[in-house]
Amino acid sequence: MKKTLLLFLALLILAGCAPWIRTGGKHSAPAQNVSLDLPDGWMRYRTDEYLFVTRDGGNLQYIMVEAIHVDSQLKHTKKKFHRGMLPLELSEIIADNMSSNQAISGLKVVENKSAKIGGRQGFRAVMNYRNKDGLKIKSVYYGFMKDDWFYGVSYAAPLRHYFSRDVKTFEKVAASLSLIRK
């Protein structure tokens, strides 16, 4: 009996620690201050740093939502977001952050235009690059600024097969995004 109980408790603990959670439907991410519709059957990585979902694994496709405060340091560029930045300026920072990442190469911004996201004026940039394994990746990035926070929602997948397969799913996710605290 004691052994069964211990086994049950161990299973409970392990289940609680599982890094991936099956997801779908309306989802609130208070840490990112966003609410959005996640695709059914995709897996969400358990972290408060960002919202990260994938269907087949991060190397094959992912959708990521991040909220970055103006005081935060970006990973690859020392540029920072400022309150009141224009969408064009925001898109330049995102592209510069990515092109300063030496794990990727040949980054090209193939499309960059103003777009509505989360009910606000922002940008939509499409970028192509090669990852560290030399695989061609295509990425779509939406971003906008609200007060002292930059919000970004992005999708990346290998150009071949995967990008076109899930890009519509991503566009639905992006279109459903709204801020929890307006």
Binding site: P87, L88, S91, V110, E111, N112, K113, S114
Partner: peptide, 10 residues
């Protein structure tokens, strides 16, 4: 220019 849509907005 790739950023034409922004500039037109501005």
């Amino acid at each position: 220019a790739r950023d034409r849509s922004y500039i037109q907005d501005y």
